[in-house]
Design a protein around this nucleic acid. Structure first.
Lengths: 235, 235
DNA sequence: CATTGTGAAGTGATTCACAGCA
DNA sequence: TGCTGTGAATCACTTCACAATG
């Protein structure tokens, strides 16, 4: 990488493979993993970067560059061994171990997440569902029952939970977030339309359904020429 | 910027402002909109780029640069008029008009999306729920009832639907996608864990819950040093 | 050979830093 | 004076293009 010049004079020693995987690459590893799994399911044993790239929806140079951050797992003139590469990526992401997840806020979305099979199929085990509404506590969803938010500490500690999912209304999100952090959760997936603040050691990712629609609306508007002074007349 | 001498009254000489908004900026406009709404709700009438930036969770230089793509809506030495800027951003995104949305696949997630109030509160009206499972057709969810996928053409045409949401299993996603496109939908939000191909004129965005968790797991693993047996010391 | 792995070039986004203006 | 709007500098990511190699 072009880190030429060197900043803080000294630490220039590039430990690329271990520390320096670009975020953009990290975000694509699960996509590659899924593509490899699909190939493996179709009994494909070897794939070139081009095959894989098509299967993952990226271009092959990007794919090769991405993989190069992990190590050299390909064979020149041949390609990649599908199962071997799949294992390596799974290991890199951390899917060779199980992860315990708690979901807080068991409304419509929380329900859906609790039942979402896509979590379980990777190594994510939903170990608890929490809600602050005491009327809901005890209710069962799938094979879990809803616990009180007050049990959070106990649940996180005893279940080695490191990932929390927030599916509460926006108004409750920061409080829930603080409690998750206090209980020891250090990665959070937030579905509430709210900006959350967390200490540095906590990772947070946000999924905002209404923002996604708004981004689509922006482009849709451009397409139909509704904005710019072109005669509108939708409909 | 090209606004030299050109204000809003003039014609569309400002090619850049209208056409060239960077994707990264577009993705943040809804965030700014939300921050402005929150400020407005607290009766804040004026905000500096710094205020706004804090409220939106970005830095102020980025916010100012983003806003500069839309036009010149601030006042030097003062800041931005909250309601005025809010309107301008809403207009830019296309939220000054309503958008009809159909949701296909009324399983757990589809249900949750159908009931999600965050859509309606912006200008998104869910006008139809579709499912290919005939046993489900007729069932009611909120104040809508589930229609057959076969009615898609009719629904899209009569309701001027331009946005479709796919919440089906992965195996059905491409077929549903093709049917949406054939019916005239030109923006798609895909929740199915599948790579969809669409013609150029169709915009597609993907929300993948399991990928989000995997990205968190990657970082979580690094934090706990679970993987590589990295010796903490940099050497 | 075919295909990987990677420097180098290219593109896009972010941040800096300050001129220009209310 | 205080803050916006924006060129210039920097940083991050992507793509090119080809030497290295099983």
């Amino acid at each position: 990488m072009t880190n030429a010049g060197g900043r803080k004079g000294g630490r220039a020693r590039v430990e690329r493979a271990e520390r320096g995987i670009p975020e953009a690459t990290v975000a694509r590893l699960p996509v590659y993993l899924r593509a490899l799994t699909a190939l493996s399911d179709r009994d494909v044993t070897t794939a070139s970067s081009e095959d894989l790239a098509v299967s993952a929806g990226v271009n092959s140079a990007k794919l090769r560059k991405d993989l190069s951050y992990l190590g050299t797992y390909g064979t020149r003139g041949v390609g990649y061994d599908v199962d071997y590469l799949r294992y390596q990526i799974a290991r890199e992401i951390g899917l060779t171990q199980d992860w315990s997840v708690v979901i807080v806020g068991i409304g419509n979305l929380g329900h859906a997440l609790a039942n979402y099979s896509g979590f379980a199929s990777r190594g994510f085990r939903v170990t608890a569902l929490l809600d602050s509404d005491e009327a809901r506590v005890g209710e069962s969803v799938g094979d879990l029952h809803i616990s009180s938010l007050d049990d959070l500490d106990e649940i996180v500690r005893s279940g080695s939970v490191s990932i929390g999912v927030i599916a509460t209304p926006a108004a409750a999100a920061q409080i829930v977030c603080d409690r998750l952090v206090a209980a020891g959760v250090s990665s959070i997936l937030n579905f509430a339309p709210a900006l959350l603040s967390v200490p540095d050691h906590v990772d947070i990712r946000k999924v905002d359904l209404s923002i996604e629609l708004q981004i689509l609306a922006f482009h849709e508007q451009r397409k139909t020429g509704a904005l710019t002074g072109i005669k509108a007349g939708t409909g």
